[in-house]
Computed example of a mutant assay.
Amino acid sequence: MKKALELLLCASLMVGLLAGCGGNSKPTEQQPDEGGSTTAAKVAYLTPSLDVPFWRYVRHGVEDELAKSDIECVTYDSKDDANTQMSNAQDAITKQVDAIIISPTDSASCVSVLSLAEEAGVPVVICDIGTDSGEYVAFISTDNEAGGKAIGEYIASQLESGTEVAQITLNQARINGVLRKDGFDAGIATNGLVDVDFKQMEKVNRSEGETFAQDLITAHPNLGAIFCHSEDPTMGAVSALEAAGREDVLVAAFDCSPEIVDAIRDGRVAGTSAQQPVLMGRYSAQAVVDCLAGNEVEKEITLDTLLVTKDNIDEVYDTLVEVALTDE
C-alpha cells in the first residue's frame, strides 16, 4: 500500500509528458488571429454527463490544469447521448477551438468525432473509456481490468467458494466496461465465486443501480455480492438492499465519492477500486498543452486504481481527496 501511495503522489507531481504530438512550435497561451492581434488558446472538453460525479471530478482536473497555462476551457455536457456529443464536437470545431479533450459516450461513437476533428485539423486527447479506432494525440485511461480484478479478489476473500455474485455494469459497448467486468470475473475466480448475471446501465445513475439491484436479488435470491461499475449507481444498489433487508449481500464498487467513503466506513459498501479522475483530467490537459506547444506527447498513459476498504480508508483518504474527489 505504501508503494501504491508513493506512485500516486509521484504521478501527481509529473510536469511533462513524452513522445507523440511533435511538430512546429505553437504558442499555448496566445495565438495571432487574422487581424494580427492575439487571442487566448481555447480547448473544448466533451464529457458524457455532468450528472455523474466522476465526470465532474475529471472536468475539475481538465479546467484547473489548463488554467495554469492561461488556456480557456469550454466544457460540453453530452447528456449521455452520442448524437449530442457529436453535435457538441461540431459546435466546438465551428467555434475554432485549438484542441479537443473527449471522454466518449461510448467507444463506437467516438470514431466519428475523431474523424470529424481530423478532417478539421483539430488535435484530440481521449480521457477515459477509449475508442474503437481513429487518430488521436493521446489516450489517458485507467487500468480497468486490473481494478476490476482487485475488487473481485477482495470480495472473493470475504465469501465462501461457490457463492453466487452478480454485476451492474457499464454499457458493454464501452471498452472500459468490458474490462471491468472481465477483471472482476478473474478476481472472483481466485476463490471459486460464480458470476450468475449482469445488468447493463445506460444512464449510469442511482435509479438504475437501485432498479437493477432489486431485479438481481429477486432473480437470484442466494446472491452473496453485487459489483457495481460506478459510484452513484452503487449507492442506489445499497438503497435497494437496505429496503429489502438484505444485509447479507456485499456491495462492491468502482470509482469513489464522499458517499462511497461514508458507506465504506459504516460497512454498507465492502470496498471500491477508486480511479483517479482529477489526475486523469490533469494529464489530459497537460497532453494538450504540450501538443499545442509542439512538444512530444506520450501516446498512452494508464493510471492505477486504489483499492479502498474499511481496513485502509483512513490511510488513503487524503490521497483520495487529491486525485479523485475534488470537483471545484
Results as ranks from 00 to 15, higher is better:
Val113Leu: 12
Glu118Gly: 11
Val137Asp: 11
Ser161Leu: 00
Lys149Gly: 03
Ala117Thr: 07
Ile175Pro: 00
Gly177His: 05
Gln172Lys: 09
Gly121Tyr: 10
Ser115Ile: 09
Gly177Thr: 03
Gly130Ile: 00
Gly130Tyr: 00
Thr131Met: 10
Asp182Pro: 00
Asp128Asn: 15
Gln167Cys: 07
Ala138Ser: 15
Gln158Lys: 14
Gln172Glu: 12
Val178Gln: 15
Asn144His: 12
Glu135Lys: 15
Val178Lys: 13
Val124Thr: 13
Ile151Ala: 06
Glu135Asp: 15
Thr169Pro: 02
Ser133Asn: 15
Ala166His: 02
Phe139Trp: 15
Glu153Val: 01
Ile126Cys: 11
Ala146Pro: 01
Ser115Phe: 02
Leu170Ser: 05
Gly152Met: 04
Thr163Phe: 03
Leu116Thr: 11
Asp185Trp: 01
Gly121Ile: 05
Val113Ala: 03
Gly187Tyr: 05
Ile151Pro: 02
Ser161Trp: 03
Thr163Asp: 07
Ile155His: 08
Gly130Trp: 00
Ala150Pro: 03
Gly130Phe: 00
Val124Pro: 13
Asp132Trp: 02
Glu119Phe: 05
Asn144Glu: 12
Thr142Ile: 09
Ile129Val: 15
Lys149Thr: 05
Ser133Glu: 15
Phe184Cys: 01
Lys181Arg: 15
Ile140Phe: 10
Glu118Ile: 02
Val124Met: 12
Ala166Phe: 02
Asp143Met: 02
Asp128Leu: 12
